[in-house]
Simulated assay, not measured.
Amino acid sequence: MGETRSNNNVVYRCTYHVVWCPKYRRKVITGDVDIRLKQIIREVCTERDAPIVELETMPDHVHLLVTVDPQYGIHRLVKQIKGRSSRLIRQEFPEVRSRIPTLWTNSYFVATVGGATLEIAKRYVESQRNV
């Protein structure tokens, strides 16, 4: 059912399934951009002590299963991932910068994952590469 975690004030088990897309759903998450994006996501999650359960990218969207401290919040984590990755990817890959005005759309999908559905969600994210 997932690992129970704690901070100074809260004992929690908050796992989220997050999906977001590049602006205009452009297929820019390929090759070196894909590799660098995953590295940035892992760095942010490590800094925020938000363990990644599963991470998969498609050319036009990202799936992330992540456990987040409820006092930090999923919105703050996603905002930090999208902000840092947009800035760094657009600096490091001029071809991305020339194709879209900003890397990400303002929106994203998020759902809580828990109990028996965690394994189902994990299998779903893992299977996305084969679609």
Rank of each mutant, 00 (worst) to 15 (best):
L118T: 07
M1V: 10
L37I: 04
N130G: 09
K38A: 12
R99L: 13
N8H: 14
P22R: 12
V10M: 12
D34G: 07
H61V: 03
M58W: 03
V78M: 00
R99E: 15
P51L: 04
E56A: 11
R42G: 12
G2V: 10
E56H: 13
R90Q: 12
K23I: 05
V68G: 06
R5Q: 13
V125N: 06
W20R: 06
G73D: 05
P70K: 01
D69H: 02
K82E: 02
V96Q: 04
Q39S: 09
V131E: 11
W20H: 03
G73T: 02
Y72M: 07
T102V: 09
N8Q: 12
P59D: 04
V10R: 10
R36W: 00
L103N: 00
K82R: 09
R42W: 07
E119S: 15
Q71A: 14
T102D: 02
R87N: 07
E95R: 13
E126I: 12
G73V: 01
A116G: 09
K27Q: 12
V78R: 00
V28A: 08
V11I: 14
A121P: 01
V78H: 00
D49K: 15
C14G: 10
T112H: 08
W20Y: 09
I74W: 00
W104C: 05
K23P: 00
T102H: 11
R90V: 00
T112G: 09
K23T: 14
I100V: 15
I120R: 14
R25Q: 10
E119T: 14
V28I: 15
I41D: 10
L88W: 08
D49R: 14
K79Y: 08
D60E: 15
I40K: 01
S98E: 15
E47H: 09
I52Q: 02
S85A: 04
